[in-house]
Amino acid sequence: MTTKATSKPKAAPRKKKIAAAAATVSADPTFYLIEADDHHHPTGGATLLGFWIYLMSDALLFAAIFATFGVLGTSYAGGPTPREIFELPLVALNTAILLVSSITYGFGMLAMEQGKAKLTQTWLLITGLLGASFVGIELYEFGKLIAEGATPQTSGFLSAFFTLVGTHGLHVTFGIIWIVVMLVQVQKRGLIPENKRRLLCLSMFWHFLDVVWIGVFTFVYLLGMLR
């Protein structure tokens, strides 16, 4: 009895709506064309643009941290200078790893376009492993710095350094978690439109992190070695 009571008022406005829609159709057929168009393209496009806006706001977060590093980058407070603690070969290796992971993700996207789920997963796995080795090398570098006494508490330069590089590393870590989630998703449901949309968002995220890394290795490491 109660279900009937609740469903009845719902049905009534719907009927009214249909009647109103029918009236609109006779008056203005373009109304229905727009509705049909909306139906064909679900939230996919809006999601991608929205995710892009998120990435841009993330870029502003990094801009603030880069500015902080730029201001504090020469405040050594008697602590070590970049020249004394940075190891460029290690940074070059990390840069290469991240760049290669960018193109392996790109190949994953191409496999996705062709509808090859297994191949997509393989490329995703390779990308995730490359990302993990990137974070591993970064943690090794951090550990070494801290063992040498170059802790974030030592100077303004090191505080800003650990904040900037650490924030980027944290982003990569979350990217890896996302990759693992997508591996499971594709395994369970295949390349359904929702998964494709998610993979496209992750693609933008991953390539964006590589762009941020260009700023990091240029402004922190390379220019640091020149100071």
Binding site: G44, G45, M112, E113
Partner: peptide
């Protein structure tokens, strides 16, 4: 696939 663009070709990669 009736979805949005946003991915390139092998050549562009």
């Amino acid at each position: 696939h009736g979805e949005m663009e946003g991915h390139g070709s092998k050549r562009s990669y």
